[in-house]
């Protein structure tokens, strides 16, 4: 039997220059990673040494304090309400703005301005917005709702605008040809095409907002995060465990419900 020859095939035949470039890239990345590991004092021995303490903390968390559930009912409800209103407001903001962020709908300068606004809203984390709004409107869930609304508007606006850009041009031309007004062209030519994608994006946003709403309380912007934070501060680790489990249950059920709904909407 003849020995089989193996060929190493990449995108194109590699020259010596390609190999040098590749080697340099790997070398530099490795150096950067090692340097930052030292800078951050990442160390395996310390993790091993700390293991008993972690085990100790976890052992203090079990069993979770189920009695604490009763006290969590209100914060859980509040968290869900924050997520829902945050989503409603962000969709309401994104809805009119998305057309101004669609390349094929408006002049370039308006497109770029709106997109930059979305980028800024998206670039700043909800928690940072929450800190700002707590300073502006005071402690409480309203600050949380505002934080989710603004950040979510940036996310949804971009999604909505991209759906508009991807809408088939044909039906739009057909509607213009019937003599329909600009609003009618949008309502009958674009909306039906983008609505399923819009609803799916909004549902996904609701899911993300629920996750975000669970930590807003840590900066005083309402929801279950506050209970979690204070139980830790008071060393009530069994209460902390209950909080974590409740959050997990909330997030997982939101995940399940929203993905089922999205699948249903995109299919029909």
């Amino acid at each position: 039997m003849k020995p089989r020859r193996l060929q190493f095939i990449l995108g194109h035949p590699w020259t010596g220059r390609d190999w040098t470039k590749c080697g340099l890239l790997f070398g530099i990345s490795a150096l950067a990673l090692l340097w930052s590991a030292r800078y951050l004092s990442l160390s395996l021995p310390e993790l091993i040494q700390g293991a008993p303490w972690i085990a100790d903390l976890v052992s203090r968390m079990v069993p979770p304090n189920w009695g604490f559930l009763r006290q969590l009912a209100r914060p859980v409800l509040e968290t869900i309400q924050i997520a829902i209103w945050g989503t409603v407001f962000s969709a309401a903001l994104a809805l009119p703005l998305c057309f101004m962020a669609a390349r094929n709908m408006v002049p370039r300068w308006l497109f770029h301005t709106t997109r930059q606004f979305f980028n800024a809203a998206r670039g700043i984390n909800e928690l940072i917005f929450a800190l700002i709004f707590v300073a502006a409107v005071g402690l409480g869930p309203f600050a949380g709702v505002l934080a989710l609304s603004l950040h979510g508007a940036g996310m949804l606006g971009k999604f909505f605008a991209e759906a508009v850009e991807e809408a088939d041009r044909g039906p739009i031309e057909a509607l213009r040809a019937t003599g329909a007004s600009a609003t009618q062209v949008v309502a009958f030519g674009i909306l039906p095409q983008v609505l399923p994608a819009w609803i799916a994006a909004t549902l996904y946003r609701l899911e993300v907002n629920l996750r975000a709403a669970t930590v807003l309380g840590m900066v005083g912007a309402g929801g279950i995060g506050f209970e979690l934070y204070s139980s830790l501060k008071l060393f009530q680790y069994q209460d902390t465990a209950t909080c974590v489990l409740v959050i997990l249950a909330m997030v997982m059920s939101a995940d399940y419900v929203s993905s089922r709904l999205r699948a249903y909407i995109l299919a029909s």
Binding site: D168, G170, P171, E173, A174, L175, R176, A177, T178, G179, A180, S181, Q184, F188, G189, P192, Q193, L195, P196
Partner: peptide, 29 residues
């Protein structure tokens, strides 16, 4: 335009509207 109908190679119907509503878009103007 409302007095001139147009028919396209790729028909250009709105895919996820009902047939009736697609025809009704001819009445929009």
């Amino acid at each position: 335009r409302s007095e001139v109908g147009m028919i396209f190679q790729d028909h250009n119907l709105v895919p996820n509207l009902s047939v009736l509503k697609n025809v009704l878009t001819g009445r929009l103007s």
